[in-house]
Amino acid sequence: MEAWLKALFFPGFLFLLVVFLMIFYFERKILADVHLRTGPYYVGKWGILQTTADVFKLLQKEFIIQRRANKLLFSLIPFVAFLLVVALIAFIPFSENLWVVSTSFDLLIILALVTGMPPVFFYAGWASKSKYSFIGGLRVVNQMISGEIPLWLSALSVAVFFGTLNNLEIVKESSFLSFLVLLPAFLIFITSTLIVTDRPPFDIPEAEQEVVYGFLTEFGGFNYAILVLSKLVELFALYCVAVILFLGGFKGPVLPGIVWFFIKIAFLYLFTFVVRASTPRIRMDQLLRFCWKVLTPLALLNLAFVILIKMFLF
């Protein structure tokens, strides 16, 4: 397959849309299972088309911009956010030859793009010119910056261990031993992923009961769909990175590589949904304390530990 075809279809836009719909569907279905409900049921077989119907409803909606809002920024932000996160997917190898781009700085580029997200979300809140959006924007910057440092540090420990930043090489060199050595880094990475993409229990910027919907409050229809899509894709990309760095990517017996990749991703998503069903949201000051006093020192210690192992064992 040629690169532009890949970018358009398989690990590209169309694929992302399908993934977005499926993840949304499974989130609802699994949450419903934990709640002892049935979940989506009537649209399509097992309600599988329910999320598609919801998204098409969103696309039909009126395009509303608040009177005081900064009109250019307000309508531009969703697309900027979407482009930023879609670029992440290009660097992810789903199987041995299914990737759009592969450079020697894959990991660095991905992390740099993730770091680019907070200003975008802050501007989304600021451009809305509404009180709750503004508070949500401030919270998102606070939270993401404090979450990104452990994310970087834990991802760097992998780079140190394997001695490369190329995703494909990392996957090729990974083994069970490397998984064991990098287990603490994995836990830190997953926790900070939840913080950076504000999933529950760290969904403070869009805490419904406190600040309505945070920076998403004033968005509606197509803009809203694209913003939510970009947030979901960010989480998806970071989970892909987690699978590549720690769980051995597409490696696995019998089944083809892409299937193994998605099995691992599904496991991580199941964990996310179950956490959402059982853990109440924590407060902003508690989160900051947790990030700076617990997570960042632990990530630093972990980096030192990996360096020591690299020095003496390999």
């Binding site: 934990v34 002892l36 853990t279």
Partner: peptide, 13 residues
């Protein structure tokens, strides 16, 4: 608690 809540996945609806 997260592990315990997973039990509900297998309970009857």
């Amino acid at each position: 608690k997260v592990i315990r809540v997973t039990k509900a996945l297998f309970a009857p609806k």
